[in-house]
């Protein structure tokens, strides 16, 4: 049997080898929010692949063979950056990637490189957790950051696919108009949320808290990426009992046990927000993501 192994495998390759139909540009997005933005700006001119889905935790993804195959053919790799994907993106880049998507190239787009990164630590030590050593990478829940990345992405698409530059520019203009109007509405609604007290699980919400002026009472994770400790949870209970809170915010991929435990002791409801596009069925695109998020927060405020 072994004598025929090599020819058999070669034959298998011959079957899978023919490349599929070529789109004008291929975008490999690490997270669904960037895939959604790439679809807004790229439209029919791009093929978008999202490495993760809305219920996955992008901190911890396996560098699956299929991801290497996708990066291998990508014209643009569009990720959050700031080491959010440090556990898996380097493997994909090293094994599969084309020169054009390597760092410093137009096809390499890291969102955190183009916005103001919050929570940059003063010292780096693994005892502070194994993630976020260069600041908080969850930049997408600020509509202003999305707007900045839209401009940047349109420019990058025009560089890797100059033939469709006009299409990208006009789609960007259209998106900016719609996004600008929506952002105005959202900011008005955020006025009504100002000072609403919330507890979060992971530091994934700082950008949302920033522009909505929600009031952060406590984090269940004292150290990013490390499950909450008993002593820290006791402290959180104390704090929530004294200050009160409208909601304990969870992303779809966050573990529920600590949040449920806190809810049981304090009566503060657990509210799961979509966090990203596809995190909940109603959050099907970027606009819906912010609409749904604000609606859920308003509901929590009204209840408390």
């Amino acid at each position: 049997m072994s004598r025929h192994l090599a020819p058999a495998l070669l034959a298998a390759f011959a079957v899978v080898a023919p490349a599929s139909a070529a789109a004008d540009a291929r975008v490999f997005a690490c997270e669904p929010e960037w895939a959604a933005l790439a679809s807004e700006i790229g439209g029919d001119n791009v093929t978008v692949y999202s490495a993760t889905h809305g219920r996955q935790d992008a901190h911890y993804i396996r560098a699956r063979p299929s991801l290497i195959a996708q990066v291998r053919r990508a014209d643009i790799v569009f990720c959050s950056g700031a080491e959010l994907e440090v556990g898996w993106l380097p493997v994909l880049m090293e094994r599969g990637a084309r020169p054009g998507v390597q760092p410093g190239q137009p096809g390499h787009l890291m969102a955190a490189d183009h916005v103001e990164v919050m929570e940059r630590p003063e010292r780096i030590d693994r005892s502070l957790g194994d993630i976020h050593p260069t600041g908080n990478p969850h930049v997408h829940l600020d509509p202003g950051n999305i707007a900045r990345l839209a401009v940047e992405l349109a420019g990058r698409l025009a560089r890797v696919d100059p033939a469709n530059e006009e299409a990208y520019r006009s789609r960007l203009a259209d998106f900016e108009a719609r996004w600008g109007a929506a952002t105005k509405r959202w900011r008005a609604r955020a006025e009504g949320l100002r000072g609403t007290k919330v507890v979060v699980h992971h530091a994934a919400w700082v950008y949302l808290l920033g522009w909505t002026d929600l009031d952060l009472v406590a984090r269940l994770e004292r150290i990013s990426g490390v499950p909450p400790t008993a002593s820290h949870l006791r402290d959180v209970v104390e704090r929530v009992r004294t200050t009160g809170a409208a909601a304990i915010l969870l992303a779809p991929h966050d573990p529920v046990d600590a949040a449920d435990w806190l809810a049981e002791r304090t009566g503060v409801p657990v509210v799961e927000l979509p966090f990203t596009v596809g995190g909940q069925d109603e959050a099907g695109d970027l606009f819906a993501l912010f609409d749904v998020t604000l609606a859920l927060l308003e509901k929590a405020r009204d209840r408390s």
Partner: peptide, 29 residues
Amino acid sequence: ALEGQLSNLEKKSQAEEKKTPAATPAKKA
């Protein structure tokens, strides 16, 4: 975080002038 937002606002006007994309704040650390 508040300081970050403030400086963000301040920088906005400057940033609009020089549209250099390759500022990589996340990597400084």
